[in-house]
């Protein structure tokens, strides 16, 4: 017997009583979605900036190698993107668009089409996610309602920069992935 069949037969041999799946109720959310989302991003050690602030940051020239996956900022792209993510190792800034954000925890939903290469938001030194403030949901239940049964091969919530606290519980930003997350919140 294959291990698959062995495992399944062992499970079948266990007498189990039926247990119904519960219905997930709609939980009320109190307060302002935008304010809560911003507070959540800050708590996750990200930043929230306006489009104007972002433009001046770009103009300041602090980012040497830049790639924008979205039209609005494509004029700042100064590297060639290939199929091989390894070549993004020295990328200083990636700019992508988030589909929507979750107020209760700051998580921003992305799919394959939003990042091009799946490694992009991780391998870049700094990450900017552009998000329309109209695209906010209250909590994770609403988030999955919105995602529905979409079929992207990869889906990702990003809620902050790469971080760790593995050395004596001291928080350090920039463990492996992006050392910063800036969320450009549109239509504030």
């Amino acid at each position: 017997m294959s291990s698959r069949d062995l495992i399944l037969s062992k499970i079948k041999a266990v007498p189990l009583e039926a247990k119904n799946l519960p219905t997930i109720p709609e939980f009320e959310f109190e307060g302002d979605l935008k304010a809560r989302f911003i507070a959540s991003i800050l708590a996750n050690k990200g930043e929230v900036i306006t489009k104007a602030e972002f433009f001046s940051l770009l103009d300041s020239g602090v980012f040497e190698k830049v790639y924008s996956h979205i039209e609005d900022f494509s004029s700042f792209t100064n590297i060639k993107i290939t199929e091989d993510a390894h070549q993004l190792n020295d990328l200083n800034l990636a700019i992508i668009r988030g589909q929507f954000g979750v107020a209760e925890n700051g998580a921003i939903w992305l799919e394959d089409q939003d990042m091009g290469l799946r490694a992009l938001p991780f391998i870049t030194e700094h990450l900017v996610i552009v998000l329309d403030s109209e695209n906010l949901v209250a909590n994770m239940h609403q988030a999955y309602d919105r995602i529905g049964l979409q079929e992207s091969g990869f889906g990702l919530f990003i809620a902050g920069p790469s971080k760790t606290a593995d050395i004596e519980q001291s928080l350090v930003i920039g463990a492996h992935g992006a050392k910063s997350l800036r969320v450009v919140l549109l239509n504030l």
């Binding site: 996750n44 979750v102 091969g153």
Partner: peptide, 15 residues
């Protein structure tokens, strides 16, 4: 005690 991990990745099919 954080509201969510900073990365939550959903793997559905390979690149």
């Amino acid at each position: 005690g954080q509201s969510v991990t900073n990365y939550t990745s959903h793997f559905r099919s390979p690149s």
